[in-house]
Design a protein around this nucleic acid. Structure first.
Length: 719
DNA sequence: AGAAAGGTTGTTTTT
DNA sequence: CAACCTTTCT
């Protein structure tokens, strides 16, 4: 007998899933294969805990890999009847630890207004510290040091514990720079991504009462994508879950693809040893892909040695075989993809949003973009240059960061003379001198500089203006809305005039980005009922491109295979399957690393619902040089039964010939009605170009004006 | 002080 | 090939 409050799940979950949902107490490991409905299990489990076990939402902690996954989960839970989820903690590891750190910052000597530094900021500090030590950037790259520090922090190695190995001549430098880097961060009230995880661990280890508070609070802990947790995340989990020991982790060792970021596949491999008495469940039924796709993916990942045994199956139909395209170069590859997309849209009535084009490195997206642009196929790119990392955006954010946390020298230097206000290099280095002498931060150094006799009147006047500008905003920070503050700010400091007066296409684009920033601030204010600067800054620091990606958009999605984790598409293209690219050459020689590349390929392949395409090229431009390539070893490993080798480079050329028209082709005239596979019906406006470069401008009823290359447009005449 | 030009360098994947 | 840094020119 079910009451209104109870969970109706018979139709929604299979017996295995139901068993997992209702098994609530003690440690649980769910080994969930690709497409086996693990997110569904987690959401139902949360609902079950609240509705059936009467657990208060605020006592449940759920950790996901991306904000996007967290938001989707929240939405799904909100759709359950009678379920209040306002107080649920659902978020990424980083956002959760950041939340904890904001509250408890003082226990590690931080103020709760700390700023979060990204890789660029970190590099600036490393360069500065290197300069202090007199290390030249010529001999050792700041980026190399950055990577080593990052690696150390990922593995919870402090500067004191950093081991200088005798085979690495840079380790000495790394150790000393690392140590200074940490001091710098602390004295400027800044943290990096790793600190978000490390600092709470430090707090918990040194303040048992604080740890107890969180241990008591979170009676149930659920973790998604557990295979990609690193040492710090694992440590945090162990600390928080210790008391109640109700921890449910869900993951798939075959999808562990973040080893380079410190993820430890051993966390999932050894979970049942660390958490004694852990109950292990397996979800092996795949709901997503066709038999062909799943079989193909299995035949690939079976080549890995370090993995848990599993037996994925699907009741879905055989489906089409996997298409393998062998193309002459990346232009051909892009073209092959475009043609296949058009074909499928036409024949199978798919939408543009059903397609994803995946690649190993972001750099590959450029040629694909060009190709799709020429073909007039709408696309969106996820990743690459992140929105909040664009220069114009970071400039404005730097103002906000300084206003909120004036200890932040890095961001202060970024804006002190932007837009130009007559504070040049000489003045800045004078200020730095003063600051160092008095042992204060730059901001206070400026204040001292205003009074200093060693500076020319002109500079002192400019410094004064700048100082009081920031002071003014610091004093009104709580009096006016965030929205208003930012708008006045960019007017007052002259960023808006600066960007608009240039008038180039580039500056116009930048101005548009600023507008986008402003509207994202408006959104945030609305959502948070007038949120704070800190809140906004935190949100965007932890935001990824994927989080803003709109999967309902009518456009083909381009992204890295890493970004595709957890998503699904009707048709998926995996491109650039060449030795050195996929697997990437840094990872070609070590068998463990090749296994991770193979898992990455597996992740990409299992995103596809009913059609998978693979492609490689014979020649590829790299480093500005055209090089011959060798096709990926992975293509030799897989079971050929699943593959159809349908495309040869010649065939693409044939298509071109078939569609080629002459400039004289009189069928194309302004005014005629035409139909396009993707854009629908439209009217020809004008014709330009000759030979195979004939372009026509068509005004489509549904999507407006588009310029198309006749050669590829495949237009049908309607009159 | 700031822009323009020239040289050099390097490509992984991201919260 | 581009992004980035340094130098040089105005």
């Amino acid at each position: 007998m079910k009451t209104k409050n109870k969970l109706y799940w018979d139709k929604e979950l299979n017996p295995e899933q139901r068993e997992i949902v209702s098994y609530t107490d003690g440690p649980i490991l769910v080994l969930a294969g690709a497409g086996s409905g693990k997110t569904r299990v987690i959401t139902y489990k949360i609902a079950y805990l609240i509705l059936e076990k009467n657990i208060l939402p605020e006592r449940i902690l759920t950790l996901t890999f991306t904000n996007k996954a967290a938001n989707e989960m929240k939405e799904r839970i909100a759709s359950f009847k009678n379920l209040k989820c306002d107080n649920l903690w659902i978020g990424t590891f980083h956002s959760m630890s950041c939340r904890i750190l904001r509250r408890e910052a003082k226990f590690v000597g931080y103020k709760n207004t700390f700023n979060i530094y990204d890789e660029n900021d970190q590099l600036k500090i490393i360069k500065e510290v290197m300069g202090r030590f007199g290390y030249s950037e010529k001999n050792i790259l700041p980026k190399t040091i950055y990577r080593k520090i990052d690696y150390a922090k990922n593995h919870l190695v402090s500067p004191e514990n950093y081991v200088v190995s005798d085979w690495d001549r840079y380790d000495n430098i790394v150790k000393s720079v690392y140590s200074e880097y940490e001091k710098f961060m602390k004295s400027h009230n800044a943290v990096d991504f790793n600190d978000l995880l490390i600092k709470p661990i430090e707090i918990f280890n040194t303040n048992p009462s604080i740890l107890k508070k969180y241990q008591n609070k979170f009676k149930y802990i659920l973790v998604d994508e557990f295979q990609d947790t690193n040492l710090a995340q694992y440590q945090l989990l162990k600390l928080i879950s210790q008391k109640h020991n109700n921890i449910c982790i869900v993951g798939d060792d075959d999808q562990s693809i973040y080893g380079w970021r410190g993820a430890e596949i051993s966390n999932i491999m050894n979970f049942d040893k660390e958490f004694k008495g852990a109950k292990i469940f397996k979800l092996e039924r795949n709901y997503r892909s066709t038999k062909n796709i799943l079989g193909f993916a299995q035949s690939l990942v079976n080549n890995n040695k370090n993995r848990r045994d599993k037996n994925l199956w699907t009741p879905n139909e055989e489906g089409e075989k996997i298409s393998l395209g062998s193309l002459t170069d990346e232009k051909g590859e892009s073209n092959w993809i475009a043609q296949n997309i058009k074909k499928e849209i036409f024949k199978k009535k798919k939408r543009l949003g059903d397609f994803a084009v995946l690649y190993r490195t972001n750099a590959q997206s450029r040629v694909l973009e060009e190709g799709f642009y020429n073909e007039s196929i709408p696309y969106t790119i996820v990743g690459g240059v992140r929105f909040y990392e664009r220069k114009e955006i970071k400039d404005i954010l730097a103002y906000l960061k300084v206003i909120s946390n004036p200890d932040d020298d890095i961001n202060l230097k970024r804006i002190i003379n932007y837009p130009a206000r007559g504070i040049g290099k000489t003045t800045i280095s004078k200020i730095e001198e003063i600051s160092k002498e008095k042992g204060v931060n730059l901001y206070q150094g400026i204040k001292l500089g205003i009074e200093s006799k060693n500076l020319p009147d002109r500079s002192r006047e400019n410094l004064k203006l700048f100082y009081y500008l920031i002071e003014k905003y610091r004093s009104i920070i709580r009096k006016i809305s965030l929205n208003e503050l930012v708008r006045t700010l960019i007017e007052e400091v002259g960023i808006s005039t600066l960007l608009r007066k240039e008038g180039t296409e580039e500056s116009l684009g930048r101005w548009e980005n600023v507008q986008e920033l402003l509207s994202s601030i408006s959104d945030y204010s609305k959502q948070k009922n007038n949120g704070s600067i800190d809140g906004f800054l935190e949100k965007i620091s932890l935001f990824s491109d994927l989080d803003v990606w709109d999967n309902k958009q009518d456009a083909v999605t381009f992204m890295t295979v890493h970004n595709a984790k957890g998503l699904e598409f009707s048709s998926v293209f995996i491109t650039g399957l060449e030795e050195g690219l996929f697997p990437l050459y840094n990872y070609m020689n070590d068998e463990k690393e090749v296994e991770e590349e193979r898992r990455l390929f597996y992740v990409g392949a299992t995103r596809a619902i009913d059609k998978l395409y693979l492609s490689y090229v014979v020649k590829r431009m790299r480093f500005g040089e055209i090089k011959n390539t060798k096709c990926s070893r992975f293509l030799d490993e897989i079971d050929r039964r699943f593959i159809v080798n349908e495309i040869e480079p010649i065939k693409v050329r044939k298509r071109k010939l078939k569609n080629k028209i002459n400039a004289k082709d009189e069928r194309y005239r302004a005014g005629r009605s035409v139909a396009h596979e993707i854009f629908g019906i439209g009217r020809i406006i004008e014709i330009e170009g000759t030979g195979e470069f004939v372009k026509i401008l068509v005004d489509f009823e549904a999507v407006g004006r588009k310029k198309l290359l006749v050669k590829y447009a495949n237009l049908k005449f309607m009159d």
